[in-house]
């Protein structure tokens, strides 16, 4: 099954506004991703919601001035991935430093 799909309704509005539906995701990814994308230069609005607690779904809305939302989403995921990699590297370095006699 695909993890990401688009919510219908934005097809006629160009590429600059979309709501993506993430399967089996929630606040963990939603809020972290929103926190990055919200701070991009061209982004007009970005927000997420978990519409129903009994459904493992997360809706992620992006509206931009010009940039296609798909590019923004990809850039957001890449940046979040970079944040994670940096955190892992830094943490492991500090652990090594701490355990050094």
């Amino acid at each position: 099954m695909m993890k990401i799909s688009e919510l219908p309704g934005d097809e006629d509005a160009g590429l600059t506004c979309r709501t993506y539906v993430f399967q089996n995701e929630s606040h963990t990814l939603g809020n972290a991703l929103k926190c990055i994308i919200d701070r991009y230069e061209d982004v007009q609005f970005c927000g997420y919601t978990v519409p129903h607690p009994a459904e493992a779904k997360m809706h992620f809305r992006i509206q931009t001035h010009e940039t296609p939302t798909l590019d923004i989403l990809k850039r957001g995921l890449t940046d979040l991935q970079k944040v994670c990699e940096h955190t892992i590297d830094l943490f492991e370095k500090e652990v090594k430093e701490f355990t050094k006699p």
């Binding site: 963990t28 995921l77 991935q81 994670c84 990699e85």
Partner: peptide, 9 residues
């Protein structure tokens, strides 16, 4: 979290 981003990308 990193792997999640990777699979989605």
């Amino acid at each position: 979290l990193r792997d999640k981003c990777k699979t989605l990308l």
